[in-house]
Amino acid sequence: MAVSIRITEKSDSVRHLSSVDGKMKSLIRSIGAIEYHCDFDSYEFLVKTIIGQMLSNKAADVITQRFEKICGGVVTPQAVSGLSVADLRGVGLSNSKAGFILQLTENVLSEKLNFSIFEAMSDAEVLKALTALNGIGPWSAKMYLIFMLCREDVLPYEDGAFLQAYSWLYPMVGQKPSEIAAACAHWRPYSSIAARYLYKALDMGMTKGLPPE
């Protein structure tokens, strides 16, 4: 069951971001309230995240649809466990991604990986646990924290979509991870919410024009 969260001008996160960042304040005012959902199928989320690594959204969607089809329409550990590397290669996955997905599946079925404990763990602890898995790097782990666990203070500077929107709103700021981390320190403890507004600007096509003033 997914949880729906609505962020408005009265939310603590918006009040904070608007008070410390003039550009973000203008962006939030232009976009208004946002609503998002936190998913709870951790296995499917990570599988699809692995599929999407280093791919365009369009390419990832095509492969994901093929993958879902050979799983019988629903991506579960049980369905994937019956597939081979050759099966996964057949839908367009690389050999390494196929191996990562099958290893993830084995870890879930053997209960070596227990997603239920993540809820009580800190962001750093979840990042450490996830990046210890083959095929899960910082980008994948941060996407999990933001979109699965709905953590509010994750800065996804490894993400291409975030960087695209960030460079649009802050064109004069350095784009190196250390520079972004320093420049966005004042967003804390709501870095993820700021990122969600940047993602929303990208989705709405706002980045094709000038940033709001």
Rank of each mutant, 00 (worst) to 15 (best):
I63Q: 04
A181W: 03
V14G: 07
K208E: 09
G205H: 11
G137D: 05
V108Y: 01
C150F: 08
V154P: 13
T76C: 07
I193M: 13
V80K: 02
S96W: 07
E179H: 10
F118D: 04
V85Q: 09
Q103P: 00
I28D: 01
A161D: 02
M206L: 15
I63G: 03
M143P: 05
L83G: 11
P211K: 06
I101F: 07
I70H: 11
N107S: 12
L133G: 13
G137R: 11
C184I: 03
Y170A: 10
D123V: 06
M148I: 06
I70G: 13
E213F: 10
E44G: 08
S13A: 14
A2V: 05
N134F: 09
K48Y: 00
R89V: 02
G52R: 04
A124L: 09
P211N: 12
V3R: 14
S84K: 08
A141K: 02
S81Y: 00
V108A: 02
Q65P: 00
D12F: 07
A183L: 09
K48C: 14
H16N: 11
E213A: 15
G82P: 08
M172V: 04
I101Q: 03
S96T: 15
Y157M: 12
N107T: 01
C184S: 13
F162C: 06
L155F: 05
V14K: 11
Q175N: 13
K69E: 04
G92M: 05
D159L: 03
L210W: 06
A33D: 15
V85Y: 02
V3C: 02
E9Q: 12
P211Q: 10
L130W: 05
E158M: 09
G209W: 01
D21R: 12
G90W: 01
S110N: 12
I51D: 01
S30G: 05
Y199G: 05
V3L: 13
C38F: 00
L93W: 03
S116I: 07
A161L: 06
A98H: 08
K112L: 03
A185V: 08
R15G: 09
K200R: 15
Y43W: 00
L130Y: 11
K58D: 04
G99S: 13
D39C: 10
I101D: 03
I31M: 12
S19Y: 06
V85M: 09
I63Y: 10
I5A: 07
K142A: 01
K10D: 10
S178T: 14
I51C: 07
Y199W: 15
R188K: 14
M143Y: 07
P138S: 12
M121A: 12
Y199C: 04
S42I: 00
T76E: 12
V3A: 08
Q65T: 12
Y144H: 06
A201L: 08
P189L: 09
I34A: 04
K176R: 14
W187N: 11
L149T: 04
A161W: 01
D87K: 06
D41N: 15
V74T: 14
M204C: 02
G160T: 08
I50L: 11
V126D: 02
G82C: 00
P212H: 12
E106A: 10
M24I: 09
R188Q: 14
L102G: 11
D87G: 03
